[in-house]
């Protein structure tokens, strides 16, 4: 479905080049919900932009259904972290959701149906006429999610969408994403820096190293499919997975594409970092 192959991104500046992504390869199957987590500044947003066709990689490629992504592909929707900046402040909620549909020329009736439905499922059925800035942060992000839902994408990319909302709203929105993913059968890639979120949401968690970034670990989240904030988060398995991801992130802070190339020189330093959870989990 979504293939990332040998992806490298170097930002060329006037005085120095910054290698954000070293070499990333992973695969997301159709209908999967995958979380992407890594230490801050590890190039998560760069990766997401490359996958969304908003940024050209230096080397390697992203393929969607076998076709290389060289611009924003149809059938892909992106939800950004900065909800306040990704909504049109001059349009009401309804028009914000409807605008991307105009291009699809679905006809008025179908368009109305999609917008109504999308706003209904995110719980904004009575906010059609409001302007985004009249809503709370969480509600604004719901509008952005509704816009993505109405667009009927095959792939939904989310770039730390809940990083700027309060904890309670965040829990609600996490459950909303789980519900939408199951109801719509859409493939979701969810980028986050929050370890709990990375474990709670997905079927898989891809842990990235620090920049220049490589995949540090591709972890299957073997929690039951039915999840809820209370029981899932208090289960032993959740705690184990959480601890494991946490340790991997701590390791990732010292690990990058560079250290991987010189593992010999760094073995002593790496050996000092204990990995009890890793041994516990792996069968």
């Amino acid at each position: 479905m979504l293939d990332v192959q040998d992806l490298q991104k170097i930002y060329t500046g006037r005085h120095r080049n910054v290698e954000a992504l070293r070499n990333l390869t992973f695969h997301i199957a159709e209908g999967e919900l995958v979380c992407l987590v890594g230490p801050s500044g590890c190039g998560k947003t760069t990766l997401l932009k490359c996958m969304a066709g908003l940024l050209a990689p230096t080397r390697g490629e992203v393929r969607l259904d076998g076709r290389p992504v060289d611009g924003p592909p149809p059938g892909m929707a992106v939800v950004f972290q900065e909800y306040g900046r990704s909504l049109f402040a001059w349009m009401n909620v309804r028009d914000n959701v409807a605008l991307p549909l105009r291009r699809k020329k679905l006809g008025k009736a179908r368009e109305r149906e999609l917008v109504d439905h999308a706003l209904e499922v995110v719980g904004l059925a009575d906010a059609h006429q409001a302007y985004p800035w009249q809503l709370s942060g969480g509600m604004q992000q719901r509008v952005a999610i509704a816009r993505a839902v109405a667009y009927e994408p095959k792939v939904l990319l989310m770039d730390e969408p809940f990083a700027a909302v309060d904890a309670q709203t965040r829990a609600e929105l996490e459950d909303l994403i789980r519900r939408l993913w199951r109801e719509l059968g859409v493939t979701v890639l969810f980028v986050t820096h929050d370890i709990d979120e990375a474990v709670y949401l997905g079927q898989r968690t891809i842990i990235l190293s620090k920049s220049p970034t490589v995949v540090q670990e591709d972890l299957t989240i073997d929690l039951p499919d039915e999840r809820d904030q209370l029981h899932t988060r208090s289960s032993t398995r959740f705690a184990e997975l959480r601890a494991h991801v946490y340790e991997q992130i701590q390791r990732a802070k010292h690990h990058s594409g560079d250290t991987e190339a010189h593992t010999e020189a760094h073995t002593a330093a790496e050996d000092r970092i204990p990995e009890p959870a890793l041994q516990k989990i792996e069968p």
Binding site: M76, A77, R85, F88, W90, R102
Partner: peptide, 28 residues
């Protein structure tokens, strides 16, 4: 806004639609 511009691109809002709904209104 750059984020809004990226949003438009990813939803295929380009050309005159972009000019009308994003650039003109954003600069208004």
């Amino acid at each position: 806004d750059e984020v809004l511009s990226d949003t438009c691109r990813s939803y295929g809002i380009t050309g005159t639609a972009r000019l009308r709904h994003l650039v003109l209104r954003g600069a208004s």
